[in-house]
Design a protein around this nucleic acid. Sequence first.
RNA 1: GCCCGGAUGGCGGAACUGGUAGACGCGCCGGACUCAAAAUCCGGUCCUUUUGCGAGGGUGUGGGUUCGAUUCCCUCUCCGGGCACCA
Length: 863
Amino acid sequence: MQERYDPAAVEAEAQEYWVQHHSFEPKEDGSRPKYYCLSMFPYPSGRLHMGHVRNYTIGDVITRFMRMNGRNVLQPMGWDAFGLPAENAAIANSVPPAKWTFDNIAYMKNQLKTLGFGLDWSRELATCRPEYYRWNQWLFLRMLERGVAYQKTGMVNWDPVDNTVLANEQVIDGRGWRTGALVEKREIPMYYLKITAYAEDLLDALKDMKEWPERVRAMQANWIGRSEGVRLGFPHDIETAGVLYAFTTRADTLMGVTFCAVAAEHRLAAVAARGNPQLAAFIEECKRGPAVEAELATQEKKGMATGLFVRHPISGAAVPVWVGNYVLMSYGEGAVMGVPAHDERDFEFAKKYGLPITQVIDVPGREYSLDAWKPWYSEHGRCVNSGKYDGLDYPQAVDAIAADLRTLGLGEKQTTWRLRDWGISRQRYWGCPIPIIHCRHCGAVPVPDEQLPVVLPEDLVPDGSGNPLLKDERFLKAACPKCGAEARRETDTMDTFVDSSWYFLRFACADNDKSMLDERVRYWLPVDQYIGGIEHAILHLLYARFWTRFMSEMGSVPFKEPFTNLFTLGMVLNEVFFRKPASGRIEYFNPADVTVTTDKITQKRVAVLRADGQEVESGGVVTMSKSKNNGVDPIELVGEFGADTARLFTMFAAPPDQTLEWSDEGVQGAYRFIKRLWKAVHDHVSQGPPPALEKSSLNDAQRAMRRQAHQTLAKVTDDLGRRRTYNTAIAAVMELLNALAKFPHSDAQERSVAQEALEIAVIGLSPIIPHVTHALWQALGHPQALIEVAWPAADAEALETSTVNMVVQVNGKLRGHISVAVDADEGSVRAAALADSNVQKFIAGAAVRKVIIVPRKLVNIVV
RNA sequence: GCCCGGAUGGCGGAACUGGUAGACGCGCCGGACUCAAAAUCCGGUCCUUUUGCGAGGGUGUGGGUUCGAUUCCCUCUCCGGGCACCA
């Protein structure tokens, strides 16, 4: 065995072994339990970032651990290869997005191999390949047939200078990111998927998904947003006799309505705007407003009276109709009843515009005043000032009012969802073409299955002014499948979330060119463990669940939930350094180019840019990103310390589901530990092979060492398998190694105990640092490769102990320690506790009121 | 604004089911080795007090439940994620 740890040589050899032996290319095998471990596939942005390393290391730890525990483990990898960044790169460099994407894939694949992940590359897929996206198209046609896909108009951001549709992220303060032009809204026809038809099932199923993090289930449930309420109608005679409908969860406050507010897009707003230029201008202003919910919700609440009135459904009183910029057309009926006394937004609105406020709910012991909003105003209580409903509580009032409305034909109880249908049309080039042909005579005609795939040309270079497909005659021209007339292809492409809504199924059968899925899906799916960033907690995961439900209905898959167990990891953060010139833009400096020292006198941290020796400011610790220039290149790290160090640090520095703060010193520490482990094995094996362990003849110190080794094994097994707290598993092995360093190594039995402890350390860490442990396992005298070794169980005999240490508290404060026999009864434990000299000091002269004994842990004496 | 998380020494974190707060690592201090430095090894390291044993305080804020609270409940503050066309 070499004395010096040489990561480059060790890692090349181990990786060579796994490739040669196809260690991670599992075949379907009905005789063995399968395990499908999947990390969210990356967008091929150019190079791996630390978030990828963290994500894929977790996946790899699970993969290797489950493999050693006898499972037939599949861990595939692919590329989420369509998307906006490729178009941006294309515009910047005049390269087709396809070339940019494929170059990036080649580069990043190499990076992944360098890190030693146990990936099955034989199943690799990229969503931008026609072999893949043809099935997007095929399934979209099935959805069209079943009415799950449908067409309606939707609003988009329009850049009037570039004549192009902008993504929300390309709109900065209401202006186009490239042109700076004021962004307009346009209503255009788009395709939608009817995810709302699955809302109830998507919500109900969450209750049984115990293996998903509670927070993700909560976020999804809130997103779907089931609301039980009442749909109520305000009759009117505007134009002709009609009814303005609104949805409310607070029908008990109906008698407190003093106005109604409608969205700018509401039909009544348009009616009122005729002949009212001021109102028309206000409506236009609202429509130009933000598209993003966060901005909508924080903008100043504004409104304008329409001059129209509707009638209160119960009292018949005239109720003024306003247009409000806080009313969403996309939720409920696009109109709300205004009850300023009991709704905070309505209260503010009424205050601002001088609308009346009528208290109709009374909460005992509380005094209502019109001066300022108080949180209790929106609490449930009893009806007052509400005529026949006075005295009713919330459920009684809602029932009574819903019943009366029903009699009047002006409403009923209703369940409303926050979830909206999924608009999948994107007016962009680098995506999966929507398989539709537009014919002058026949309208929008689906492309017949036998003409699939509709292939996206890969040689176009977008220039930022609209979708290049619109200018590509080869793509555009098509014969109408119905009448044969010359027709035009749909140029919209699909949202990239479509691509990622089923890729996990395709890994089971990526080589099938005849059908989307086959019987192998039944062996591998559902995914046993899915791992990805918390930022995907809602959209991606919800879309994938919806998609799987549709495929289940079609009979394509025998399950509705695609991911049995979900693990969400935290973000990777790093400190950000910058200089802010008196004028001009902030300049960010990469932390690798900055030296931070602590001033000995002032104790202040000082950051200096090495290039010029001048100080830079610290902007705190934030998510690693290109824009803040605070990323760390994982591959540079691998070059300097090896993949095992990169893996060990990312697993050790923080629990995997929480944010991880980057630390160069921490990386050094990880490297130091691996070197110590290497040296410990080297020093041990250089004395030659130890004799067989004679368990019965060990002395106390040897027995204790052995006990710690097996306790460590039990802890590591639990931390890796159940708790997924890789940081504490590593800490436990570090403790074991620290203990072993103090353990004598001279007689034969001591060396046998040490051999066993070292083997436990090496096996225990092997899922995390597989390369170095592969080499160390050989050095410890084993011909079989470590990846083929079965995960050991802790020896129950080694864990046995005769005495146990307990702490003694007096009134909850720690006062002493006692050592008692494991099987000591309460009486003797109590006696030992009371006999402790320090404890005596605190109970002297006081009456012992109570003694609480927690077996094997603690005694608390209450005096 | 709404929904979901988080906050513990100089720093990252540990304490799993309400039972010894600070494991493990980083940094720092002292020592060994060295002509010297690096690397490595050994010892120390929450704060106050004490020669020491010990004592007092301490888990973002303020309150509550309990023999006992980092852990449970309520309040507030700050930080992070998501908000439907970034992926």
